[in-house]
Amino acid sequence: MKFTLAKPRIFFKVSRFLFPFIIVMGVLCFGTGLYTALVTSPPDYQQGDAMRIMYIHVPASWMALCVYSLLAILSLFILVWRHPLAEILAISAAPIGALFTLLSLVTGSLWGKPMWGTYWVWDARLTSVLVLLFLYVGYWALYKAYAHPAQGIRAASLLALIGAINLPIIKGSVNWWNTLHQPASITKLSTPSIHPSMLFPLGLMTAAYGFYFLLLLILRARTEFNKRKCLVQENFS
């Protein structure tokens, strides 16, 4: 199979071209998103202003799942096709995903105290997201546990693929079992149970998170690529 587009050189050319666009869009979305979320959107009829944590919490959770899905797909490419760009991207994406998961857990916990009356409960949703954080951390630990990164990445990719089984569990947990966490408001088949005036800032914040992820991913991938180039040069000289 030929991956002309997936050659690292071409990827970096395209990403260099897109980079300014991503920065501008990211700043715009974050600015308008935070303003509409924290200032102009109305407080919730029951939760009051505390529901504004949702604008930080929900996109972080979505991104945590998205990044893990990406990691799992990249891992398949690494294990089957031994693809170098997939390696660089997976290594760059994993810590960002861990960051999103941590952010989701922390903001959720801060929301839980005033609303539920507790920081943490061991219900199916919260526990499965905690497992997701452990998967990210385990992925990184396994990758770093080998002296040679080429070995580490294979072991870690296998873990990432096995861990992908957690994704449908996180998504389904609130529907399959009764949990303290509420079921999905938006990613369900009927119309969203969230008012448009609140959906709009949430959409902006989600876009902002997405651009922020792309930005970090490109920067980290560049660093990783250059690091590898240096290693190769050192080995030859």
């Binding site: 919730d44 009829y45 609303m115 539920w116 507790t118 509420q182 079921p183 969230i194 008012h195 609140m198």
Partner: peptide, 10 residues
Amino acid sequence: LAKHDENYMP
């Protein structure tokens, strides 16, 4: 513990 539903509105 209070259980919140999935409805958000002003």
